Structure formats: structure tokens, C-alpha cells
Amino acid sequence: QVALSRTQVCGILREELFQGDAFHQSDTHIFIIMGASGDLAKKKIYPTIWWLFRDGLLPENTFIVGYARSRLTVADIRKQSEPFFKATPEEKLKLEDFFARNSYVAGQYDDAASYQRLNSHMNALHLGSQANRLFYLALPPTVYEAVTKNIHESCMSQIGWNRIIVEKPFGRDLQSSDRLSNHISSLFREDQIYRIDHYLGKEMVQNLMVLRFANRIFGPIWNRDNIACVILTFKEPFGTEGRGGYFDEFGIIRDVMQNHLLQMLCLVAMEKPASTNSDDVRDEKVKVLKCISEVQANNVVLGQYVGNPDGEGEATKGYLDDPTVPRGSTTATFAAVVLYVENERWDGVPFILRCGKALNERKAEVRLQFHDVAGDIFHQQCKRNELVIRVQPNEAVYTKMMTKKPGMFFNPEESELDLTYGNRYKNVKLPDAYERLILDVFCGSQMHFVRSDELREAWRIFTPLLHQIELEKPKPIPYIYGSRGPTEADELMKRVGFQYEGTYKWVNPHKL
């Protein structure tokens, strides 16, 4: 086992960053958080920038500027975001240094004079007029057009580079997404736009490419001749908990499936790229999406959770019991969808996408189930092999396979070949997804960000279904809070070829 401390991990990262040409360590950078008073800024962006600063992973002359409508001070920003920093008493001095680099400007999102004030403020910072500028839009999409237009007109660096990070949702359907994309691309070049999907920053999602293309053993079996089906799962054990009003506007397909799960599907299904260059990788992902037809209604199961009468606390409440959810809402909190990649490698292999709230566990994984062994000599005792990439929690890679049961006879039983990170790298604290992705933006690497043509294809696949749901308002199937979801989803999976045995229990190697 390799035991690495946080300091050692960050030392390795620093070495990698400083050796590259793309990370300008000594240049002045300004990180501007648009929507600095909001939840995302408070819980994710400010803490992430602090962790990067604490670990010495930001360029040395980096300033952080918050911008929002609320009249706040840096002290206010500190008060609301610091509880999420997880700072230790030993880091007190470092924390003071961090907040000394912070400033805040209040202004409207659609007022040109406010942006001119913001620009004057940035120019007044040390070497601010020639600094590289990175704008993070932690804002609702309704203000994107006004904000990007004003940034472009008043706040661009004339000497350094300018980059803009856009948070999902990128529209509600193909038409609104196209409108937003066309607007942003009329102001910024594609190499300046970073559409963030934080799932692409997760260690195991990034590991998929290495697993596939750096190991000879997987190449020959990664196709329709050997793989019976692919299941991509995202499960949350909690409901909307008072935030249903926002969720109800989008629903589970827009929230998770059309982005996170579809991105994971691309990494499983794509061909080997010409290189690890950002556009070479994204070219292959677009090719996969172009091979997927629009979702067919007979390959869809929609569910909505109801309270568990035997549960406790939140578990007793259904989705419609959330006071922020519109009365009688038919918005799905669970969806199972089957897609097919219609190309030579994957023809006929079902890709089953499942996601839901208020389920029995927290889990995100990719599961490849292989065909049955031909010419069975073990009297149907063999179960199908599976390769599982567990994204969260407890990152893991393992192969479910058959071995001989101890004893006199040739009785096979299920076991696993474990390729888990935790076994080799004991207690290594890896940077989280937002840390990686923000560092990628500083480096100018777009590999783990969504390109406009990729986004367009993703919406093309799901828009007809979303429009049909909005028009017909089908009643989702009720499922109990804390269950596996509607049984109809299991029946759909069985119908397209997935075999669920229920006889195997994964042993978490992190707890051995």
C-alpha cells in the first residue's frame, strides 16, 4: 500500500502544474464570482478556492472578487462561507491571508454602469489591468444573457486571457439551449467557454479513460460480442427537503440524466481518441451522441416518491408533501431510460440510465454486464461477469466473477477481482471535483468540460421526450421513500436483457 498525506498529494500536483506551459504561476489572475451571495458560491466555490489557495495550487498573485446585487462586505462573505471551509486552528494565518486577497463589488446584473465599476475595481488591483480574468457564473440561467453581454462589453482583460465558467442547466430543451449557446458564442470563442459538469471532475469518471485505453485486457472485450448491457446509475437517499420548488422546474431527467449520466455513457462508449488533447476527446464523445436516436417512450419509466409510513423524519414525507412543490405536480423524481448506440461496436446493446431521489442508498456507478459463458459445464450455477466502476461513495473498480467454492467439488461461487483505489492508495485525500475543474480552467484544459456541439446532441436525444411529458403530463409511478424505485423499472431492465441475480454482496474494501 502507498500512504500519501494531503501535503504529498498537493506537492505532486504542484510539480505537475508548474512543469506545464499552460499554468502561468507568476502571472496575476483575477477570479470573479458572479452571484457571490448565492448558495453555490457559499457552499462550493469559495470553499474550493480556499482549498486550492491553502494547498498552494493557485497562481501566487490571485485575487478573488465577488459580485452580486446584495450590498455585502468581505466580512459578510466570510461569515456565510467559512463554515464550509473546514479550516483547522493551525490554518488561521493562512485564512487571514486568503481573505486579504478577497474583495466585493455590489451591482445589478443588467446595468452597464455596475460592470464599469467592477472593471475599475479590477484595474485598481495590483497589475489588475493586465491580469488573466476568470469569470464564474454562479447564477440562474435567466440572467446569463445580460451578464455575459455586460462582461464582454465592460470587463474583459485587454492583455491577459479571459475565460468564463457556465453552470448547468444549459437551457431547458434543445431550442433554449441553442439560443443560449448562440448568444454566448457570439461574445466569446469556444476556447474561452467552460460549461461545467462537476461529474466530469470526479476521480473515477476520469479513471474510465485510463482503464479503457491503457489496459490491453479490456480492449478486445469492450464491444457487443461480449457486453450484454451497460447500466449507469445515480441514486440519492434523500428527497427534495424543502427545495422542491427549484427541482420541480427541471425534474430528474434535466437535473441528472441528460448531463451526468449521458457524459458517463460517452466515456464508456467512445472510441479511442487520437490523443488526450481536449478536442480529440470531445470529438469522440460527440460521435457517440450522434449514434444515439431520440428516446422512445416505451423505453422510459418515470416515478415519484411517496412517504414511507414506517419511516422516520423526512422519510415519512412524499414529494408532494414538500411545501415548495406545486400542488398535484407530476414532475418525476425517478427515471429509467434505455438508449442504444447504433454503431458497429455497440449495435443492440442497451445502455440503461437510472437516477432518482429518496432511494435506498447513495450511489453513482457504471456497471457493464457481460454475456453468459458459452457451453456451460457447471449446471447453470454460473452468474454473469460484471465490471463495476463505483464513482461514489467509496470509489472502487471491481470485476464480479466466478471462482471455485472451497471444498471437494467443482462448485462455482461469485467473488470479485478488486482493482480499488483504496487498497493501493491508503487514506489518500484526493482533490474534489470542483478543485480539479477550476484548476483545469486556470490551465486552459477543456477536456472535462462540455463543448457546444456535445451539448446540442445531448438535448436532441431528450427534448422530444421532455416535450411529450410536458404536454401529456403522465402521472409518475409512486414508489416508497427509501425503496429501490418503481418495480416497473426493474421490469424494463429485465425486458431489454439485464439479469439481476441478487445473490452477490459487494464487500467494501475500504472497511476491511
Rank of each mutant, 00 (worst) to 15 (best):
E294G: 12
C355W: 02
R424W: 00
N360Y: 03
M401P: 03
C355Q: 04
I389P: 02
S415E: 03
I438K: 00
V450Y: 02
V337P: 01
M493L: 12
Y434Q: 04
N343A: 07
H467M: 10
G318W: 01
E365S: 08
E312L: 13
G444S: 09
V306F: 13
I352H: 03
T420S: 15
N360S: 08
D432R: 10
R436E: 01
K400Y: 05
T333M: 00
L419C: 13
R327N: 14
G313A: 12
D372T: 07
Q380P: 14
E413V: 12
L353Y: 02
E413G: 08
E395R: 05
M401S: 04
G328D: 15
V288E: 01
L261P: 02
D280P: 09
K505A: 15
H371W: 08
K475W: 10
Q381V: 11
D321W: 06
Q296T: 14
V373S: 07
E361N: 07
T463D: 14
M402S: 09
Q258G: 06
S329I: 00
N360T: 06
P431V: 10
T333D: 02
D279K: 12
F410T: 13
E312T: 12
R460D: 05
E435G: 09
E361Q: 08
W459Q: 01
G502Q: 10
R327I: 15
V325P: 00
G328H: 14
F334A: 08
T276R: 10
M257P: 06
N343I: 03
K473S: 11
W346Y: 03
R327E: 15
D280V: 13
R495D: 14
D322P: 02
G313P: 09
P273G: 00
K505L: 12
V373Y: 06
T463V: 05
E395V: 05
V450L: 07
G375T: 14
C443V: 14
L471T: 14
H379N: 12
V397M: 11
Q380F: 08
D255V: 03
E416G: 09
T324M: 10
E395I: 05
Q392Y: 06
P478H: 11
L492P: 03
G482D: 05
L359S: 06
V325G: 04
I469R: 04
V281T: 08
D490V: 07
M493W: 08
K317W: 08
G375D: 14
E312Y: 12
L492A: 06
P478V: 08
L353A: 05
A297W: 14
G497H: 11
L455V: 05
D279E: 10
D376L: 07
C382H: 13
P393V: 02
E457V: 09
Q380I: 07
E271D: 09
Q304E: 00
N259A: 02
T316N: 13
K357V: 01
R456Y: 08
K272S: 07
V441A: 14
A489V: 09
T330D: 09
E501T: 13
R436A: 09
C266Y: 03
V428H: 15
Y481G: 06
S293Q: 13
G482A: 08
L267I: 11
A396K: 01
L439Y: 09
V391N: 04
G422E: 15
N360H: 06
M493N: 11
A297K: 15
K473F: 10
A336K: 06
F351K: 00
I438S: 00
R436S: 10
R460Y: 06
C266V: 07
V256P: 03
K404S: 00
G303L: 02
V338C: 11
M401G: 00
G482M: 05
A358P: 04
P478F: 08
R345T: 14
N423V: 12
V366E: 01
N299E: 14
E488W: 05
A335S: 12
E501Y: 11
V507E: 14
A335F: 04
T330I: 11
T487H: 12
P486S: 00
D255W: 01
I438P: 01
F410K: 08
V373A: 09
E472M: 12
R254A: 08
G311R: 12
C443M: 14
N411T: 13
G407S: 00
I438D: 01
L387R: 02
I477Q: 14
E472S: 13
D321N: 10
L289T: 09
M493V: 15
V338P: 10
M493Q: 15
P474S: 13
Y398H: 02
A269S: 11
E413L: 12
R362P: 08
V341W: 02
C382T: 14
N411L: 06
G444C: 06
R384L: 00
K363S: 05
P273K: 04
D372S: 10
E344I: 06
C355E: 01
S275H: 04
H448R: 09
E414P: 10
Y481Q: 10
T331G: 04
Q380W: 09
I253E: 03
V391R: 03
N360C: 05
E271F: 00
R484D: 01
D418E: 07
Y421E: 00
D255E: 02
I253P: 00
E491M: 12
R354T: 04
C382P: 15
G407W: 06
Q304M: 05
T503Y: 10
K290S: 12
Q258Y: 03
R484N: 01
M447D: 04
L359N: 03
Y481T: 08
K287P: 01
E365D: 09
N385E: 00
I377A: 09
V281M: 10
T330S: 15
Y434I: 02
R460C: 07
D372W: 06
Q380H: 15
Y425H: 11
A458G: 11
I253C: 10
Y504L: 04
E488N: 09
P323I: 15
L265P: 02
V281Y: 05
V301E: 09
Y434F: 04
R495T: 15
H260Y: 01
E365T: 08
D347L: 09
E271L: 06
F334N: 03
P406S: 07
G328S: 13
G303C: 02
V306S: 14
W346L: 00
A364T: 15
M401L: 08
D310Y: 14
Q446D: 01
L430E: 05
P431D: 13
R384Y: 02
V337K: 08
C382F: 13
V300W: 11
I477A: 11
S275L: 05
M447L: 11
S293D: 11
E491S: 13
G303T: 03
G303R: 00
F449L: 04
D418M: 04
P406R: 07
S483E: 09
G348R: 10
P464S: 11
T276D: 12
V397L: 09
H467T: 13
E395S: 11
I352F: 07
K363A: 05
G356L: 04
F334R: 04
D321S: 11
E413I: 13
W459M: 02
V366H: 00
D279F: 07
N394S: 09
R436W: 01
L320N: 10
Y305C: 05
T420W: 05
V325Q: 04
G422R: 15
S415H: 04
V349N: 03
V366N: 01
G444H: 07
C443S: 09
K505T: 14
